[in-house]
Design a protein around this nucleic acid. Structure first.
Lengths: 198, 198
DNA sequence: CATAAGTAAACAAACATTTACTTACTTTGC
DNA sequence: GCAAAGTAAGTAAATGTTTGTTTACTTATG
């Protein structure tokens, strides 16, 4: 039997992410994607059940999974608070600024009901995403380093600013000079850490 | 001549916001909107040039404008840092939690290329949004209260966590107990302020 | 009546998806 | 060894449906 052409499968994913990043989720159509990837629409349906299946697999397998891996690289729940948070910020910043299209889809995960639902479900089915980070916070609270906030509140306080800064980073790629540098990120991270400590 | 029925105009806007909040921006169609508002599709085109025009006017006039007004209520650029930031957080939290559909469209402004572009343009044409906040930061830097960061960086550090917390607030309306209360918001705000001070 | 607001029904274009067919590779029988 | 059968991958073109928008007509009020 004729073997799958893995290049085509990869082209579908890469080009879908490009279209989403450049024209938005609502402007990705199966026919546009097929044309841009130089394949027949049918070929997409050999690899994905339908458009929903494609979007969800793109989001979960192509973006969320690799992002989690990158964020948790060399991070351990046993690290002290400042070291751990800085490591998470650095990993996250580097991954997202080097993977613009992944970042774009990640942002869509917040507003798209389809992707939001898929995330909740994947979180239940295959264990919680970013589990080591949850353990990390639990330990920090136990050790009395930070206040006893809910996990979701830590996420908001510690990581929402970072994603907003990555957003600014990409806004600034089209302007004369980049203001969001690794140095600025570190300064911001330290400000956030300072606010969280008891 | 037959006068405009203002109720119908309002119904269009209100129901459009509802559909966006419940089904997402990509699932708002002109025909669905007309049906839900109990009017003919043509009626929408009497009031708006096309779908883009409707979305942009919804975003700018119905959501962004009123949000700015609410956020700046009783806020003055001359306030001291902690008082000013707390006022902005409180105004913002109250407005957004009481206007769920407005918040949903506001969030879409970040990911939708159409709305993003419309925002940039409106910002240029009719003067900067949230201008008093910019003056506020300028003064704080001058007085040496906070470090000399770029305006966009302040926005990320000070307000991104708040929007994320509002997001959590609505996630929790469907769960047993609300964890995002005004008390929690105030605690979080104080943490953010603490991080920013020199 | 004059006129703009409003409607029901229809329009072409674009949409996700399928049908009917071809291609390219693996396996099998000799 | 190797050709032909078998099979899934892949294609071009078309499917029925939904989309944004318009046409041709009716209604309500100054």
């Amino acid at each position: 039997m004729r073997p799958k052409n893995l290049e085509k499968e990869e082209a579908i994913r890469t080009i879908a992410l490009q279209i989403i990043a450049e024209e938005g989720l609502e402007n990705l159509t199966m026919q546009k994607l097929a044309k841009a990837a130089n394949i027949s629409p049918r070929t997409i349906y050999i690899k994905y059940k339908d458009k929903e299946d494609l979007l969800i697999k793109l989001f979960i397998e192509e973006v969320l999974g690799p992002y989690e891996t990158a964020v948790l690289e060399n991070f351990h729940a046993s690290m002290d608070f400042a070291t751990g948070v800085k490591k998470l910020w650095q990993n996250s910043f580097r991954y997202l600024t080097r993977n613009r299209t992944h970042f774009a889809l990640l942002q869509n995960g917040k507003t798209s009901p389809l992707l939001n639902k898929a995330y909740q479900q994947a979180n239940i089915e295959q264990g919680q995403y970013f589990k080591p980070i949850h353990q990390f916070f639990k330990q920090q609270v136990k050790q009395g380093v930070v206040r006893n906030f809910h996990q979701d509140i830590y996420r908001a306080l510690l990581f929402a600013p970072l994603l907003e800064l990555v957003n600014e980073y990409f806004d600034y790629t089209e302007r004369p000079k980049q203001i969001i540098t690794e140095k600025v990120i570190l300064d911001c991270c330290e400000a956030v850490i300072k606010g969280m400590l008891k």
